[in-house]
């Protein structure tokens, strides 16, 4: 790349507007050409320096190591039922833990708290305790009447006869 072209491209390079291939060429030239590099400001140096650095070649065994590990993981994660990828051991363990948590929640919510629950602000009073309180307050005077189903049935029969 000619010095003039590289200098022309410097502003576009600084603004990030140069296509990748042209940017690479401009960086290499500006960083390696003694005449061009003599005029670069520190900020411009920062822009062109990446062109000086080469690239690391992966080790010769890199690809082999990768495929060995990929194969090992695939074998370890393979399900005994083809087509059921969701049934991997990790996912099954997660699903099992979730089911256990839900079951535990249901079990705890169904514990018999009424009448035998813990006292104090967190404990809810049971049915017997509630009825006793309502009686004491005079709100329920004839609770037994509510359970006198025969009388209620008779009242219903009288109504039908009258019709």
């Amino acid at each position: 790349m000619k010095c003039k072209l590289a200098e022309d491209n410097l502003k576009a390079l600084m603004d990030g507007e140069l296509p990748a291939a042209e940017a690479r060429e401009a960086r290499r030239h500006l960083a390696s050409c003694p005449a061009c590099s003599a005029h670069l400001s520190p900020a411009q140096w920062v822009e062109v320096l990446p062109g000086l650095e080469g690239e690391i070649e992966p080790s010769p065994g890199f690809a082999r190591a990768f495929y060995r590990e990929a194969h090992r993981r695939r074998e370890a994660g393979r399900t005994p039922w083809p087509g059921m990828a969701w049934a991997r051991p990790g996912r099954l363990a997660g699903a099992g833990a979730l089911v256990l948590v839900v079951l535990l929640g249901v079990f705890v919510s169904r514990l018999p708290w009424d009448g035998h629950g813990p006292s104090g602000p967190a404990g809810e009073p049971g049915t017997e305790e509630t009825v006793a309180i309502l009686k004491d307050m005079g709100l329920i005077h004839h609770l037994d009447l509510l359970e006198d189903f025969e009388t209620i049935a008779d009242l219903g029969a009288l109504g039908q006869d009258a019709n």
Binding site: H29, S32, P34, L52, E53, G54
Partner: peptide
């Protein structure tokens, strides 16, 4: 120190600088 060394191998123009100090 690998990347700078690799750069000179990859880009011949960087090896043309006769000044070893540079």
């Amino acid at each position: 120190a690998a990347p700078p060394a690799a750069a000179e191998a990859a880009h011949p123009e960087l090896r043309q600088d006769p000044d070893p100090v540079r």
